[in-house]
């Protein structure tokens, strides 16, 4: 009886999760009357606005990942190595982006960095892009921090650091050649999560008026019929591809393979 109930619960979960996806996929293929086709996808891919916004978001995602890694990895490394008492504080700080709505953060940014402020980042395109990247990094912080923290917890950080130092390595070499390669899988999982967040993000990009993919998705949703469904399917596929890449990175990481 218990077994049947377990399977029933799983079946309900699967239906609840997949049915809307199947419906959306089916709808995205119905652009041509009376038959299934990839017309909606063709239309989306051929749209110059799609190409521009998607390209912009991909570049922003990559920059955010680099920025996030450069900020988070040394910080978590230092806190774990030298300031372990600060860990609860760090946990709290990195959870804030989950409880503070993005709209509050972005209004704070606009207020702090507007053209009449001491650092008028919103006055130039480059400055606004930088602000957007910082905003994305903040949004991704809970995921990146936890991924890196878990990765560092899995290695003997102190001894590896000291071993490298005794062999003549300075802090940057320790981080770049010893620590980072050993938490690469964790960093990659943080990076893919960051990528997925940035690609779909709307509030920051819209309020900072940047041509990102999120606002394009919303615009397409309000102005087109079949293309939004195709875009949603593509976004899902992209997110899942990121998840699969995390798994692949773990699988093909040579030194983490255990002897059998």
């Amino acid at each position: 009886m218990k077994r049947i109930l377990s399977w029933a619960a799983i079946a309900v979960g699967v239906v609840y999760f997949f049915l809307p996806l199947v419906g959306m996929l089916e709808f995205s293929l119905k652009m041509r009357r009376g038959e299934y086709s990839l017309d909606a996808y063709r239309s989306v891919m051929g749209d110059p606005q799609f190409q521009a916004t998607f390209g912009y978001s991909v570049v922003m995602a990559c920059l955010t990942i680099v920025f996030g890694v450069l900020v988070v990895v040394p910080t978590v490394f230092w806190v774990r190595l030298k300031l372990p008492r600060l860990r609860p504080f760090m946990e709290f700080i990195t959870l804030l982006p989950l409880v503070i709505p993005p709209i509050v953060i972005v209004f704070g940014y606009i207020r702090l960095f507007n053209t009449s402020s001491w650092l008028p980042l919103t006055g130039t395109t480059l400055g606004t892009d930088f602000l957007l990247m910082c905003g994305y990094a903040v949004l991704a912080l809970p995921y990146m921090y936890r991924a890196v923290d878990t990765g560092l917890a899995a290695i003997d950080l102190r001894t590896l650091t000291e071993a490298a130092q005794s062999l003549g390595a300075g802090w940057i070499t320790v981080l770049a050649k010893v620590i980072l390669p050993n938490v690469l899988v964790a960093v990659l999982s943080g990076a893919f999560l960051t990528f997925a967040i940035v690609i779909g993000e709307y509030v920051f990009a819209a309020l900072l008026d940047r041509p990102a993919f999120g606002p394009y998705l919303v615009w397409a949703g309000g102005n087109k019929a079949y293309e939004p469904a195709a875009l949603a399917v593509m976004t899902f596929a992209l997110t899942w591809a990121c998840m699969m890449l995390i798994q692949l990175a773990t699988k093909f990481s040579k030194h983490t393979r255990m002897p059998r």
């Binding site: 001894t159 000291e162 071993a163 490298a164 130092q165 005794s166 390595a169 300075g170 050993n182 030194h255």
Partner: peptide, 20 residues
């Protein structure tokens, strides 16, 4: 600093770099 002393050290936990 430790990296300026030219001292070799062997640790209880081996401390080999797993990625190398």
């Amino acid at each position: 600093r430790p990296n300026q002393r030219n001292i070799g050290m062997v640790f209880q936990a081996y401390a080999l770099f797993p990625n190398l």
